[in-house]
Structure formats: C-alpha cells, structure tokens
Write a protein that binds this DNA or RNA. Structure first.
Length: 664
DNA sequence: GGAAACTCTG
C-alpha cells in the first residue's frame, strides 16, 4: 500500500512539518500584529494580509497545520474527534443561512441568531461550524457567558465538529470569567494525539494573557515552554509580551527582561521587529532601577531608521511605561506622534486605549484639567469612551476631591447613553463620602437599584463603612439587613464594620449579635483580633461571662440547625430513592417492550423467510441479541464504540433493515 | 477591581 501524502505527514513529528528557517522567521516578524480596531477594518486587513501570504514562500505564519483528513484512528470515538468541515461547505443554502444569521448578529439580535442556529441544526440545512462560531463570538463579545456555553454545548452535542476558532472561543470564555485553569484543561485536549485540531498562535495568546493577568506565572511559563517544545507555532512575541507583563505586575523586572532576551535568542539574535514587547521591556528596566537603559531602548526602537513595527496597542504599552515612570513629557510627545501617524483606515496608530493611558498619565501627576481635555478629544478620533474610560477618570477625580467634575462625567454618561455599571456608583459613593456629602452617597447607592444594577457585598460595605464613619450606625445596619433581601451574602468585612462600630459606641448587645452572626455564618471566621476586641469591651463593662454565653448560644443554635439539616437531608434522600426506583422500573418496562418489539420484527422476518424457504435455520438468535444491545444504547458514543470492528454492520441503519441485511 | 492585541470563510 502506498502511503498517501497526508498520512505520511501525520507520521512525521509535528515540529518537522513546518520548517522554520531563519529567513522565514524574519518574514513572520515583518507581519503586522496590530490590527485596526474597527471590525470591518480588521477584516479587510486580515484579508489583505492573507493575500500577501499567498504569494510569499511558505513561512511559519502559514496555515495552521491540521491533522490529516484521513480521519481518526480506528477505535476512537468518531463524533468527538471528527475533523471540521472545510470552508468549501459554505455555499448554496448553507451560505444563505450563514448570511441571514450574520445579519441578525449585525442588528444585534443575538437571541434570534442563536435560536435560528439551533433550529437549523436538525433541519435539512445545517449551519456550518463557521456560522456557529460567528454566533458564539457575538455572544462572547457581549459577555453572555451562560448563553455562550449553552449554545456551545448544543452544537457540540449535535456533532458540529469544532475548528480551532471554536476552541479558542471556548477557551476565551473561561479566560474572560477569570478561570484560566479551566481554559487550560480544555487546551490540553487539543494537545492529545487523537485531537483532530491543533492549537494556533491565538490559542497560546489567549491563555498566556489570562494566566499572566491572573498572576498564574508558573503556568504561563509552562505554557510558553510548551509552545517552544512542540513547535506547533513559532516563538510568538505576543505570548512573550503577555508573560513579561505578568512578571512586571508582580514586580519582577529581572524576569521580564530575561524573557525578552530569551525571545531574542530564539528568534535568531537580531532585533525583535514586533513592537509589542518593548513596553513591558521598558517597565522591566524601570523596575530594576535602570532608567537610562529603559530610555535608551525607547529611543532605539522608536528612533530614526528603526525597523520595529508599532501599532496602536504596542504604542500604548510604551506610552504606559513612560507615564507610569515619571516621563510624562516623553509620553505627550509620543502621543502627538501617534496622532500624526494615525491615518485610518490605512494606518491605525491611536485607539481608545491610547486616550485612556494618556488620561491616566496626566492624572498621575495631578494635571486633571489636561486629563479632562484629552478625555474630551476622544470624539475627534471617533473614539467613544466606554464605562471603563469614564470609571477610571471618575476614580482619579474622586480621589482628589474633585467631586463636581466626577459627577459631571457621570451625568455625561447618562446623556451619551453610556451604560454605568456598579463600579461607577461605588466610585461616586466613595467620592461623596470623602467630602462628607453623605446623603448624596446614599442616594447613589439607592440609585443602583433604580437602574437595575446589582451591588455586590463590596458595594454594600462601601455605604455601610461611610455611614458608620459619620456615626449613622442605624442606617448602616439598615443596609446590612437589606443584603439578604437583595440576595447578597455579607462577607467578613461587612460584619466587621458593624461589630467595630458597636464596640466603639459601647452598644455591646448589638456587638454580640454581630459576633454571633459571624460564628453562625459558615463562610466567615471570627478573627482572633476581633474576638479580643469584643472580649476587652465586655470586660470593661464587667460582663466577662457574656463571651462564654455567646459561644454556648452559638453551639446550641448550631446543633439545632444541624438537627434540622439532618432531618431535611433524610427526607430528601428518601424522596430521591423513591424517584430512582420509579425511574428504574420505567426503564425496565421500556426495555422489555423494546425487546418484545424487536423480537416481533425478527420473528416476522424469519417467519417470512421460513415460509419462503421452509428452512429450520436457528441463525436468527445471534442477530437478535446484537440488535437488542444496539437499540438500547442511547448515547451515540458508546454505540459507535460497540460497532467498531463489527464490519458486518452498517453504522446507521434502522433495526429492520439490518436484520434483513444480515439474514439474507 | 480594571486594559484594550485576535483565531475559521463567503
């Protein structure tokens, strides 16, 4: 048997499939990594880049290697490991459906888009995986994680074979929810031998970023090393930049710099032409106290004749490095240059982030008027500040007692239709308390409920804290008591604020009540410090015995609660058992009736055969047994496994046709 | 409690 080419390539170690030679490395570095932020521009740029790549010799940037279309090895579950459909299926009716769904997404009717996707799955016009991906991506953009996961599960169960993009979306979803470890578990599935899809550079970038942002630096390094070892993707400057950023945030400038050096070496020792690494490199040097080296690096990569490519994002990182390290003048200068270079849609050198970084830089040196001015200039670049932009400026203004300005921005959000979030209100509450506008602060807190936001325990604590500080403890207690009604669990800080307040004003009965609350709440513990505080206060009042009594009461109440819980549990268990028995009986009945039906079908066929041939053959029994097993395996996977190796049987055939096939 | 990166294709 001659080895087909795809099969042959499957047998090669992965690292040999895509040769990476030094000259190709340079090519791949020369590709811009910064894309315009408007989606249409981004798409255009991507297409253009792809066209460019088509005429260039194969480089490591070429299409991600996919495992051979020869299908998974025998013995594996076909449904879980199906290869994704090729792009050519996006034609005819399925393309029409795709377009319809894209239109719905554009009109921001995601519910309808998701619904149409689901309904089409079992119709004669199945959505392609590309269509599913588009809907999933839209849900993710809007942070609708529950809907995302639900649709993802639905299309997976309907065995729409995922592409890398599908996996990346799934991984991104978990990363967005700050659960990089779960994302990592999913990623590991892609590395298994039997996975038909391989990770792409994007996969590594998403994970590296999330791991670094969440301080999982060991895992980030492990991921990066895995990227190098497997050689599925070339050493990626973006991945390195993310990991470097993680170490910068942890204050480890040495490690950030050494990662840069490692990347440089991996890429052949020449200058790294992707500007994405330099912001964090400079921050690394600043952290090490090497200001001069940082600034030398700055003038080198951004000076005359530098080949290093910068897009908005890479610029922003350098801008931030300058702004955070007392180099505002340089930052202003760079920002001006960026604005001059900015020439959309051809060249995107400024984006929303650039403004945010500049606002931050001005605020850091308390030049608030300049900050507000830059903030206002966003409109000129057709950038709209979002909640985060507003929040961060409101934060700075509030912290510096410029409450009027902060409130002005809040009003502006309303006028411009920019959605405030819980954090906006928390910032305003803090600002008002800081300048003793207590009623205004309380007003902002209540406003949250009016506009349908859901303050968390932290937000409650802010208002409780503020009220306690101006001795309005009753009102503070009122908000504490409101928490259960709003389905918010108090945390230890919530209890502590009131416990301290009560001991301070010597309302010891109330203090004891709070302590009791802590002791009865399984999710918090009474710290030794708080305990000592209460004990001391009680002692001073000659109520030494009350502490012991508190513990006795708590023990008693706990015992009572435990007894109630046990009773509850026993009742629930009995109920569950009953339910299970019922289900078992039902299943048994179903099985029996199915067996009867199957036997009847077989008898009918065999009977007919006997009539025809007048034959006494007993061959039917084997078939019959196999058939019963087949008709009762609900899960496609196990049915598939059982069928493996049984070449007599068709995979998809209904009961009677199989019986006929094997008995004739 | 807070930064912008980008993946499949018609």
């Amino acid at each position: 048997m001659a080895l087909s080419k795809p099969l042959f390539s499957r047998l090669l170690p992965i690292s040999l499939r895509v040769p990476i030679r030094p000259q190709h490395r340079l090519l791949c570095l020369a590709t811009p990594t910064d894309l315009p932020d408007a989606p249409t521009d981004a798409a255009a740029e991507r297409r253009r880049r792809k066209r460019r790549l088509r005429v260039e010799p194969p480089s490591s940037r070429g299409p991600v290697p996919q495992r051979t279309p020869g299908g998974p090895r025998p013995g594996s579950n076909r449904n879980a490991l199906k290869l994704p459909e090729p792009a050519s299926v996006l034609s005819g009716k399925r393309l029409d459906l795709h377009r319809r769904i894209l239109t719905l997404i554009r009109e921001n009717d995601l519910n309808e888009a998701a619904l149409l996707t689901r309904h089409s799955i079992y119709s004669n016009c199945r959505p392609t995986v590309f269509t599913c991906n588009a809907v999933l991506a839209a849900l993710l953009r809007q942070a609708r994680y529950a809907d995302f996961l639900s649709l993802h599960r639905f299309v997976t169960q309907a065995s729409v074979a995922p592409t890398v993009a599908t996996h990346n979306l799934f991984i991104q979803a978990y990363c967005d929810c700050r659960r990089p470890e779960t994302a990592l578990e999913h990623f590991r599935l892609l590395l298994k031998d039997e996975s038909p899809v391989l990770p792409s550079p994007t996969t590594y970038r998403i994970l590296a970023r999330s791991l670094a942002e969440n301080g999982k630096l060991d895992l980030a390094l492990e991921l990066k090393d895995g990227m190098l070892e497997r050689g599925l993707v070339a050493p990626d400057p973006q991945v390195y930049a993310f990991v470097m950023g993680g170490f910068v945030n942890a204050g480890d400038g040495d490690k950030a710099v050494s990662l840069y050096e490692e990347l440089k070496e991996k890429l052949g020792g020449g200058p790294i032409l992707d500007g994405v690494v330099y912001g964090n490199l400079m921050k690394g040097y600043f952290l090490k106290g090497m200001e001069k080296v940082a600034m030398d690096c700055y003038s080198e990569v951004l000076g005359e004749g530098s080949e290093v490519r910068f897009g908005a994002v890479s610029y922003n990182m350098v801008l931030d490095a300058l702004g955070r390290n007392g180099r505002l003048d340089d930052a202003v200068q760079l920002f001006d240059r960026m604005c001059t270079e900015h020439d959309p849609p051809r060249r995107i050198a400024v984006n929303l982030g650039s403004f945010n970084v500049m606002v931050d830089a001005y605020c850091r040196v308390e030049r608030f008027q300049d900050a507000i001015e830059v903030f206002g200039k966003m409109g000129e670049r057709r950038c709209t500040p979002d909640a985060l932009s507003y929040n961060s400026l409101i934060d700075w203004l509030g912290k510096n007692e410029l409450v009027g300005e902060a409130e002005g921005l809040y009003k502006e959000m309303g006028e411009r239709g920019i959605n405030t979030d819980e954090y906006t209100y928390v910032l305003l509450i803090e600002s008002c308390f800081r300048v003793d506008k207590v009623d205004d602060a309380v007003g902002y807190f209540n406003k949250m409920f009016d506009v349908g936001l859901r303050p968390n325990a932290n937000a409650f604590n802010k208002v409780i804290d503020g009220l306690v500080k101006v001795d309005r403890i009753d009102e503070a207690q009122g908000f504490f008591d409101l928490m259960p009604e709003k389905e918010v669990k108090p945390n230890i800080a919530s209890y502590e604020l009131l416990l301290r307040a009560y001991t301070n004003v010597e309302s010891l009965d109330d203090a004891i009540k709070m302590a009791k609350g802590i002791l009865l709440d399984e999710s918090v513990v009474l710290s030794d410090e708080l305990k000592a505080l209460l004990e001391e206060a009680l002692e001073k009042e000659g109520r030494n015995g009350d502490m012991a009594k508190l513990y006795e009461d708590v023990e008693m109440e706990k015992a009572e609660a435990a007894a109630r819980a046990a009773e509850e549990k026993a009742r629930a268990e009995a109920l569950a058992k009953e339910e299970e028995e019922k289900k078992k009986a039902e299943a048994k009945a179903k099985e029996e009736s199915a067996a009867r039906a199957s036997r009847a079908a077989i008898d009918a066929v065999l009977g007919r055969k006997r009539e025809a041939e007048n034959d006494e053959s007993s061959e039917g029994t084997n078939v019959e047994e196999a058939q019963v097993v087949e008709s009762h395996s609900d899960t496609v996977g196990t049915a598939g496994e059982q069928n493996e190796g049984d070449d007599q049987k068709q995979e998809s055939g209904d009961a009677s046709s199989q019986v006929i096939a094997s008995s004739s």
